[in-house]
Amino acid sequence: MTLLSLAHVCSHLQNASKARLGLTSTPWNSSNLSLLLSLQRTGFLSFVTRGGAVPPDPAALSTYAPEPLTTATVARQRLWVGLKYSSNEPVMRSLQIISRPTRPVTAKLEHLERLARGWDSGPTRLIQRGLNLGECMYVSTPKGVMEIREAVERKMGGLLLCRVSP
């Protein structure tokens, strides 16, 4: 899991939400894909799909098939995501990164357990604030990127990626 594009994805999604965009796209790579998919699993995004330079038609998403990957098309592939809004407010209001490429923050299961309960915890010198109401934290574990509650359920620690709050 590389952290190179994490800050870019987070700030871009936050800006797109503030601008009330319905669709937006990020670079297509495996780390972005895993984060966005777990965001979608939590309910912050309506869909995640691979697509070209032109966004998919939201009305025909169920039948949408991304263009086949060829050497000619692979370079312009992007990840298209749908942003969600509820009663005129974005469902995902702020995304803040925790780990940076120069300073990854890893947390053990015991830390995650405390954080998920809303208490401050984390490795020494890198203590994180506990989760607030409706807040989510994403952890990169050996089983992929997942939300902190799922990681606690699976009893796994990992690399803290970002926190997302409504």
Partner: peptide, 13 residues
């Protein structure tokens, strides 16, 4: 303050 119900409805959870 955030409404928990509103959050749940927004996420579909």
């Amino acid at each position: 303050q955030k409404d928990p119900n509103e959050i749940a409805v927004g996420r579909g959870k």
